[in-house]
Amino acid sequence: MLGISYWIVPIFSAVVWTAMLITMLVYWAATGRPHYVSMSEGQHIPYISDIGADVLKPMFIAMSAITVVTFDLAFIFERWLRHAGRLTPNTSVWQKVYSTLATIAAVVGAAGLILLSIFDAKRHNKLHNIFLGVFILGYIVSAIFICLEYQRLGIHYRQHSVLRISFWIKLFFIIAEIFLAIAFGVTSKKHIYNVAAILEWIVSFIFCFYVLSYFVDFLPALRTKNHQSKQTEMQLLEEGGRTNMGDGAAESQQYYRGNAATAAPYANGATNGYTNGTNGYTNGNGYSNGHTNGYTNGNVSHNNNGYPMPAEPAPLASRNF
């Protein structure tokens, strides 16, 4: 799972949802703004469900299902990335409980949207309204639990501004959706259908931005992946450089004459830089014994360690005369 570009999931979900809404509006305007069968008398602005219950119903079902299924995958991926350490890990059991409850509520909300698109407002009006409530309530509850998790994470990881940004975005969604949902219910109950329809479209577009906000949550995982890849690349280059060293090069340190006997051995056959010859020692660079320690006089005597011996005193003159 680590090779997946997780940040694409919420973006794809938001794009599909937005494309569906815009297509519906454009289709309704392009066909002369018809008054659908499911619309009430005096209603001039259709609900999303009014357009989705007509010719565009197959698209409404398909794109709604794609939106919520991919969006729910974002909850699963977020849970996995925190477990794998690619996102800031949870610091308590309650944070994991909040995350799990948020995922369950999101699945319930997804089921509500899929079912309301199937049981349309024209043929199954009562079931349609029930599933509409399940859809809205499910994702509001999910956002509440996500906010609780992020609020606790933000306390332990104050250095991560992403958590604060995501928390405030989701909190805005909760507050806006609750007020708009209440206004939608009140205007629908009082048969102010045009205002209620406008509120429904606003709620739907806000939901799009809520889905898109999960892209922000995956940004730390993207940076972590890039950092790990760069670190791995540098490590491989370093190890490769050590492997390709030539003979006579130490594996982990430069050789200096006089190192301890435990230093890395050499591959050129020399022991501690000395040869077995009688003319002294070489300079360690692979030169032959033609030169002895920089001395040009080949008759200079040397001791067993290769150092030059002091010259013998000149013999005294003979007294036999």
Rank of each mutant, 00 (worst) to 15 (best):
I206A: 06
Q151C: 13
S117C: 13
G258T: 00
L87N: 10
M245H: 02
F179N: 02
N297M: 05
G306P: 09
S204K: 05
R242Q: 15
I146N: 10
Q253S: 10
H44A: 13
K190T: 14
N297A: 09
H156E: 14
N283G: 12
N304Y: 07
K122V: 08
F167I: 06
V15C: 15
I8W: 15
Y287N: 13
A260R: 04
L212R: 03
L115C: 14
V107C: 13
A260H: 07
F77I: 05
K122I: 06
V134A: 04
G185M: 11
G240H: 03
K190S: 13
A264E: 12
T187W: 02
E233S: 07
S301F: 01
R152L: 10
V16I: 15
S99Q: 05
F71Q: 04
Y98K: 04
V108T: 05
V162H: 09
P58D: 15
V216E: 15
K225D: 14
H156N: 12
Y287F: 06
L115P: 07
N244D: 14
I22D: 13
A102C: 02
W94C: 09
F172K: 01
A62S: 12
M234E: 11
G286C: 06
W201L: 01
A311P: 09
T224H: 08
R123S: 11
I76Y: 08
F321V: 07
C147K: 05
L2M: 07
Y47R: 00
S188Y: 04
G112F: 00
K126G: 10
L113V: 10
A62E: 12
G138I: 08
Y295D: 11
V69P: 08
G185Y: 06
T296F: 03
P265S: 04
L316F: 02
F119Y: 14
P89E: 12
A121C: 06
A111K: 01
W28C: 04
G277E: 08
S288T: 12
V108A: 07
Q228C: 08
L115N: 12
N226T: 04
H227M: 08
L219N: 00
N125D: 14
R152T: 09
G109C: 00
I76G: 09
I51D: 12
I182T: 10
N194I: 05
L116W: 03
A314N: 08
P313A: 10
S301Y: 00
R164K: 13
R223I: 01
Y307G: 12
V162I: 11
A270T: 11
I182M: 08
N303M: 02
G280I: 01
Y139P: 07
V15K: 03
F167Y: 15
G306E: 13
N320R: 01
A62W: 10
H35R: 05
E238D: 15
T271R: 01
V9A: 12
N194G: 10
W17T: 05
R257I: 05
I130L: 13
G3H: 12
P313C: 03
F135S: 12
E149H: 06
N320I: 03
T91A: 04
F131P: 06
A221C: 02
G246M: 06
G269P: 08
P34W: 03
N305I: 00
V134N: 03
R158T: 05
Y193N: 11
P220D: 11
P89Q: 10
F215W: 14
N289D: 15
I51P: 13
D72N: 14
F77K: 05
L212G: 08
G185Q: 06
N226H: 01
G138F: 01
I198T: 07
T100N: 09
